[in-house]
Design a binder for these strands. Structure first.
Length: 721
DNA sequence: TCGGACCCGG
C-alpha cells in the first residue's frame, strides 16, 4: 500500500511528456524521489576511545508516589519530539548527547520515567507435597484437552487445594489450554482469594500460545475485580502483544500503566523499548532510553540488544557504533545475545570486516559463540562472498566443536550457494542426511541445493533434487521453484519448465512477483514463438496483467502514453524488489524482438519510476553510468541512451568533465553472467572509446578528448540514436 | 520456582 502511494502521487508532478518533437531524456534530469524517509543518524563520535560523555546526574532515585494526574507517555514525550527531536535542526540530531536544557530544568527536577527497583519475588518455600503435585501436573499435561478429561483428572486430586499447591501446579502446566482451564477451576473452588500471581502465571502460559485476547480479558477482569496489576502483569501483557505484532495494544497498556501511577521497572521498560523499536519508532526509543538513563537507570545487556537490533533493521551503522560505545562507557559487558544481535546488525549495515573484528573480540573476551552467532557470521561472509573467511570459520567451528543446529546447517548451505561452493554443499547436505533427526534436510535445505545447482547451471542435479523432494514429501516452496525454473529456462528446457511450474502450483506453491519475474526473463530468452507461448501460458496463470503488458509493448502500434499507463499500473502492483527485474526483462524482450525504440521507452519509464536509482552520477571531474543492476539488454539500452545524450551535450558545446566511466561490476559471483563481457562487446559494436580500467575494477573509462572526437565522428547519426 | 533481547532463502 505504501509503495502504491509512493508511486501514485509524485510522478505526474515531475513528469509531463514533452511535445513529440523533443526527445525524452533519461539523464541530466533531477532524479525523482519517491519517498523521503528521514534516516536518523547520530552525529559522529570522534573516537570510541574518548572518555564517556558526561551524563547528567540523576535526581534522587525515589519512586514517585502514584499521582492521579500522571502524564501519559505521549505527553511526556511531547517536549522531546518538539524540541530535541526536531528534524529541522540538524545540530540537534545527536539525540543521545547531553540532553538539551529545554527539558532539563534544574529548578524543576525532571520526573523519573522508571523505577530502579525490581519487583520483589515472593520467597519460595519447599512444599513437602511437591512430588505428588508434579505427578498431577504431568497427568494434566498428558491428558486430553477436553474439559471432561481435565475435570476427571482434577477429581482425583490428592491434596488440599491450598494457595501454594495450586500455584505449584499452575506453574508446572505446559500448554496454555491446560493452564487456562486450571486457573478457571481454581477460581470456581473459592478456597482462597485470587491474587495477582495467579493471573501472572496464567498469562505467561497464554503468552506461549499467543492468546492475546484471553490475556487482555484476564487483565480487564483484574481491573474490574480490583486485583492489582503489577510490573510483571504489564510486562507479560506487553510482551504478548508484541509477539502477536499488536504494537498498538502494547503501547496502549503501557500508557494505562503510567496513568494508574505505576512506574515501570527495567523489565517493563525494556519490553516497551522493544515494542517501539519493532514498530520502527526509533526516535521514541531513543528518547525513552535517554530519559531512563537520565533517571539513573543503568541499562543492561537486554536493552542494548534491543537497541542493536533496532539499528540493525535499518542498517544504521552509526547507531550500532553508538550502542557499542554506550555499553563501554556504562561498563556493561556484552553477553552472547548482544554480540549476536550486533553481529547481525553489522551484516545488515554491510560491514563484514567489522563483524569479523567484533567476533574476534567476542571470542577473546572468553565467550563461546553459539549457533546464532555462527549463523550470523556465516551469513555475512556468504553475502559478502568472503570465501576464505567463510571456510576458515567453518573449519574453526568443527575444530572447536562449536554448537550446530539445523538453521546453521541451512545457513552454511546458503553460504555455499552465495559463494558457489558446490562440492562443499554436497558434502554438507550428505552430512545432514546421515545426521540424527533434528538436522535432516528440510525444505530450506532442499531449496538451498536447488539454488546451488540452479545457479550453477546443473539442471540434471537440480531436477533430481526436485524429484527427491516429492518422494520424501518435502514441500517445494516458491523460492525453490523459482531457482529451478530459472535454471531450466537458461537451459531452454521449456517443456520441463512447464511441468515443474504445473506440479509446483499443484503442490501449493503460490507464484509471487519474483517467480513471475523469472518466468518473464525466460520469455526474453525463448527463441521460438512456440516456446514463448508455453512460458507465457504459465505467466498468464500467475500474473495476467503482466502478460497483457508484454502483448502491449510488443505491438508496434501501441502509443507511448498507453505503455506508460499500463507500465505504471503493473509496477505499482508489483513487490518493490521485483520491479526492477520486471523492467529489465521487458527491455530484454524488446531488444530480442528488435524493438529498440520501445526498449528506450521502457528504460525511460523505469528511470522515471525510480527503478534505477543512481544509474547516472555526475561530479565536476567525472560522469559515470552505473549499469550494475541492469540486465544486459537494459545496460545496452542505457549505454546507447547515454551516448545519445552526450552527443547532444557535445553538440551544444556544454561543459564536460575530464573522465567518463561506465560501471559494470566485476561479476564477483562465480555463477554471474558477465555483464562486463557483454558490455565490452556492445561498446566495441558502437566503436565507443571505453576501455576496461586497470585501476578501478569493473569500470570502463573514456577521456573527454576520446569521447568528444568519437561523438563528432558519429554526428549526425549519434544524435538520433 | 511470576516478567524483557539474538538464527535460514531467490
Amino acid at each position: 500500500m505504501a509503495a502504491a502511494a509512493a508511486l501514485s502521487t509524485p510522478l505526474d508532478v515531475h513528469f509531463s511528456i514533452p511535445p513529440s518533437d523533443s526527445k525524452r531524456t533519461i539523464f541530466f534530469t533531477k532524479p525523482l524521489r519517491t519517498s523521503s524517509t528521514r534516516k536518523f543518524t547520530f552525529s559522529c563520535h570522534s573516537s570510541s576511545k574518548s572518555p564517556p560523555k558526561p551524563k547528567p546526574k540523576p535526581p534522587p532515585n525515589l519512586p514517585e508516589s502514584p499521582s492521579p494526574n500522571n502524564p501519559s507517555l505521549s505527553d511526556q514525550l511531547k517536549p522531546l519530539s518538539t524540541t530535541t527531536l526536531s528534524p529541522t535542526k540538524p545540530d540537534q540530531t545527536h539525540l543521545l548527547s547531553k540532553p538539551k536544557s529545554t527539558w532539563v530544568n534544574p529548578t524543576r527536577p525532571k520526573r523519573s520515567v522508571l523505577s530502579l527497583q525490581r519487583h520483589k519475588r515472593s520467597p519460595y518455600s519447599y512444599n513437602p507435597q511437591v512430588r505428588e503435585l508434579k505427578l498431577l501436573a504431568r497427568k494434566l499435561n498428558d491428558c486430553d484437552d477436553s474439559e471432561e478429561a481435565l475435570s476427571l483428572a482434577l477429581n482425583e486430586i490428592p491434596f488440599e487445594p491450598t494457595r501454594e499447591n495450586a500455584l505449584l501446579i499452575l506453574n508446572s502446566l505446559k500448554f496454555w489450554p491446560k493452564s487456562y482451564f486450571f486457573f478457571n477451576w481454581i477460581k470456581t473452588q473459592n478456597m482462597f482469594p485470587m491474587e495477582t500471581i495467579f493471573y501472572n502465571v496464567t498469562m505467561k502460559s497464554l503468552r506461549f500460545g499467543r492468546q492475546f485476547q484471553l490475556i487482555e480479558q484476564l487483565a480487564n477482569e483484574m481491573v474490574s475485580n480490583g486485583i492489582e496489576l503489577d510490573n510483571i502483569t504489564y510486562s507479560t501483557i506487553i510482551s504478548c502483544a508484541k509477539r502477536c505484532n499488536m504494537f498498538n495494544k502494547a503501547i496502549e497498556w503501557f500508557e494505562r500503566m503510567y496513568k494508574t501511577g505505576l512506574m515501570p521497572d527495567e523489565v517493563t521498560y525494556s519490553a516497551i523499548l522493544d515494542v517501539y523499536a519493532k514498530s520502527g519508532k526509533v526516535e521514541e526509543v531513543l528518547s525513552l532510553y535517554e530519559r531512563g538513563v537520565a533517571s539513573g537507570w543503568k541499562p543492561d545487556a537486554i536493552t542494548f540488544s534491543v537497541l542493536g537490533k533496532m539499528f540493525g533493521e535499518t542498517g544504521d551503522y552509526d547507531g550500532i557504533r553508538y550502542v557499542l560505545q554506550e555499553m563501554k562507557s556504562l561498563g556493561v559487558q556484552p553477553n552472547v545475545v548482544v554480540y549476536n544481535t550486533l553481529l547481525e546488525a553489522m551484516g545488515k549495515a554491510g560491514k563484514p570486516g567489522l563483524a569479523r573484528s567484533l567476533f574476534d573480540e567476542m571470542v577473546e573476551s572468553g565467550l563461546t559463540p553459539d549457533e546464532k552467532t555462527l549463523t550470523a557470521l556465516i551469513k555475512i561472509y556468504g553475502k559478502a562472498r568472503w570465501a576464505k573467511d567463510a571456510l576458515e570459520l567453518w573449519e574453526r567451528m568443527r575444530a572447536n566443536s562449536w554448537p550446530m543446529d539445523f538453521i546453521l546447517y541451512n545457513t552454511l548451505l546458503n553460504m555455499c550457494a552465495d559463494i558457489g561452493l558446490v562440492e562443499e554443499a554436497e558434502r554438507l547436505f550428505e552430512d545432514m542426511k546421515q545426521s540424527s533427526d533434528h538436522c535432516k534436510p528440510d525444505s530450506y535445505s532442499y531449496t538451498a541445493m536447488l539454488n546451488i545447482y540452479g545457479s550453477g547451471g546443473n539442471v540434471d542435479k537440480a531436477m533430481y533434487m526436485f524429484e527427491e523432494m516429492s518422494e520424501l514429501g518435502i514441500a517445494v516452496n516458491v523460492m525453490g521453484c523459482t531457482c529451478l525454473i530459472q535454471c531450466l529456462g537458461k537451459a531452454r528446457r521449456i517443456d520441463d519448465l512447464v511441468r515443474v511450474f504445473g506440479v509446483s502450483v499443484q503442490r501449493g506453491v503460490k507464484p509471487d512477483d519474483r517467480l513471475c519475474g523469472c518466468l518473464l526473463s525466460v520469455v526474453s530468452l525463448c527463441e521460438t514463438s512456440e516456446d514463448v507461448g508455453k512460458v507465457v501460458a504459465c505467466l498468464q496463470e500467475a500474473n495476467p496483467n503482466l502478460v497483457a503488458l508484454v502483448k502491449l509493448i510488443e505491438n508496434k502500434k501501441t502509443g507511448f502514453e498507453t505503455v506508460k499507463q499500463e507500465f505504471k499500473s503493473v509496477i505499482r502492483d508489483t513487490a518493490v524488489d521485483a520491479r526492477r527485474p520486471f523492467c529489465n526483462c521487458l527491455i530484454d524482450i524488446c531488444r530480442n524482438r528488435n524493438l529498440q525504440e520501445r526498449a528506450h521507452e521502457l528504460l525511460y519509464l523505469g528511470n522515471l519510476y525510480g527503478l534505477y536509482p543512481g544509474l547516472h552520477n555526475k561530479t565536476v571531474d567525472e560522469w559515470s553510468l552505473d549499469v550494475r543492476s541492469l540486465s544486459i539488454g537494459a545496460a545496452h539500452t542505457a549505454l546507447e541512451e547515454w551516448m545519445g545524450t552526450l552527443a547532444k551535450v557535445v553538440e551544444r558545446e556544454e561543459a564536460l568533465p575530464e573522465l567518463f566511466l561506465a560501471q559494470t561490476g566485476t561479476g564477483t559471483h562465480k555463477f554471474s553472467q558477465g555483464l562486463a563481457t557483454s558490455f565490452a562487446s556492445h561498446v566495441k559494436k558502437l566503436a565507443a572509446p571505453f576501455t576496461l580500467s586497470e585501476e578501478r575494477a569493473g569500470c570502463f573509462v573514456a577521456t573527454r578528448e576520446d569521447l568528444v572526437s568519437w561523438v563528432q565522428s558519429r554526428i549526425p547519426s549519434a544524435v538520433t540514436v
